[in-house]
Amino acid sequence: MTKKREGQGAQQIGEIMGDLVAQAQAKAALPPPKRQTKKITPAGLILTGADQKLIEASAEIATTPPAGEDMAFTHAVLCQVGLPRAKVEGREFMRQSGAAWVNVQAGYLDEGKGPVLQPIPYGVMPRLGLAWVSTFAVRNKEREIPIGDSAAEFLRLMGMESDGRRYTTLRKQMHALAAARLQLGFKGRTYNGQPVQQFDAWVSNKDTQQRALWPGVMVLSEDYYGSLIESAVPLDNRALHALKGSALALDVYAWLAHRLHRIEGRGVTLHWKALREQFAQEYRGKDPDKDFKKEFLPALKKVLAVYPQARVKPVTGGVLLIGSPPPIPYKGGPTV
């Protein structure tokens, strides 16, 4: 890495995070407080553990090029239209943005005693789960994904702590994802099917109270695997881990990673209505665009912290996207 790029990276962090970085550095020089769950800077600014991790990831990404395990992948269409972020009532979810659309239908899964209707997958967990299995598939050119010996191992691979609540959420959302029927559409081409062809349900053993084990392998369907290989979008795994507390931030990061390097000229301005229709069609009320803006801007700030090459500026009525390098350079040119 050149000294010029290092300087640009540090400047970008300062512009995005304001004085958070400086405050965190000052905090590091002080003796650690006893039994404190939040970090407090000398100026009185409270930094949560998530804030601190975001700052550390921002500094590392801006100054250290990605290598090896830092590279992750996801499907191009899912960069434009994502899964629901909150629980969905009913058995179907549809989201459309321009020429891209996704339709998710709930399905059944045998949990050991016959078919059980699963909910529609939503939130952070299925996003990280799909990114992880997609990354393994693209890296190894394999449809069979080794999940690991236990849920704890899977959580570790996704950079998440393991506790009782995590296990419960992981079990519920991965069952939902494995059972879901997914349709992806873009510019006249439609993929119909289920991303997961085979999945052995996580069945708990209440009699022995033994921690439930995951299946050794998850098998992606041939059609989904082929579509993924054709259109995989490279992401920085360090950024995914830093943003894992927000489904919206994960969506915005994947969207910008797919979109920004295709923009030419002076850039593109997207207004709040268009952004809400892409990311949050579920917003209703007297002023849904204003409500969405309040949620979008903090998520965007987090994303820009871990995507320092991104040139995105809030402007009157929306945001301005300016052509920027992708977080991970494409080999042999970008996919379409």
Score class of each variant (00 low, 15 high):
Met1Tyr: 10
Lys3Phe: 07
Gly9Cys: 07
Gln12Phe: 01
Gly14Ala: 12
Gly14Tyr: 05
Glu15Trp: 08
Glu15Cys: 03
Val21Asp: 05
Val21Asn: 03
Ala22Asn: 13
Lys27Ile: 07
Lys38Met: 11
Lys39Glu: 08
Thr41Asn: 08
Ala43Leu: 08
Gly44His: 09
Ile46Leu: 08
Gly49Gln: 14
Asp51Ile: 09
Asp51Ser: 10
Ser58Arg: 04
Thr64Asn: 11
Gly68Phe: 05
Phe73Thr: 00
Val77Asp: 06
Cys79Asn: 02
Gly82Pro: 00
Leu83Ile: 11
Arg85Phe: 01
Val88Ile: 14
Arg91Thr: 14
Gln96Gly: 02
Trp101Glu: 12
Gly123Thr: 04
Met125His: 05
Arg127Glu: 12
Arg127Lys: 15
Trp132Met: 13
Val133Asn: 02
Thr135Pro: 08
Val138Arg: 03
Lys141Ile: 10
Lys141Arg: 15
Lys141Gly: 07
Ala152Tyr: 10
Gly159Trp: 06
Asp163Gly: 14
Arg166Trp: 06
Thr168Pro: 00
Thr169Gly: 02
Leu170Glu: 02
Arg171Cys: 08
Lys172Val: 10
Leu177Met: 15
Ala178Val: 09
Ala180Glu: 07
Leu184Gly: 07
Gly185His: 13
Lys187Cys: 06
Arg189Leu: 12
Arg189Cys: 04
Gly193Tyr: 11
Gln197Asp: 14
Gln198Arg: 14
Asp200Cys: 00
Met218Leu: 15
Met218Pro: 04
Tyr224Arg: 04
Ser227His: 12
Glu230Ser: 14
Val233Ile: 15
Ala242His: 06
Leu248Gln: 03
Tyr253His: 10
Ala254Gln: 13
Trp255Cys: 01
Leu260Ile: 06
Ile263Ser: 06
Gly265Leu: 03
Glu277Pro: 02
Glu282Cys: 02
Glu282Ile: 01
Tyr283Ala: 02
Lys286Gln: 12
Pro288Gln: 11
Asp291Glu: 14
Lys294Ile: 09
Lys294Arg: 15
Phe296Ser: 01
Phe296Thr: 04
Leu300Gln: 05
Ala305Pro: 01
Arg311Glu: 13
Arg311Lys: 15
Val319Cys: 09
Leu321Asp: 09
Tyr330Glu: 05
Lys331Trp: 03
Lys331Arg: 14
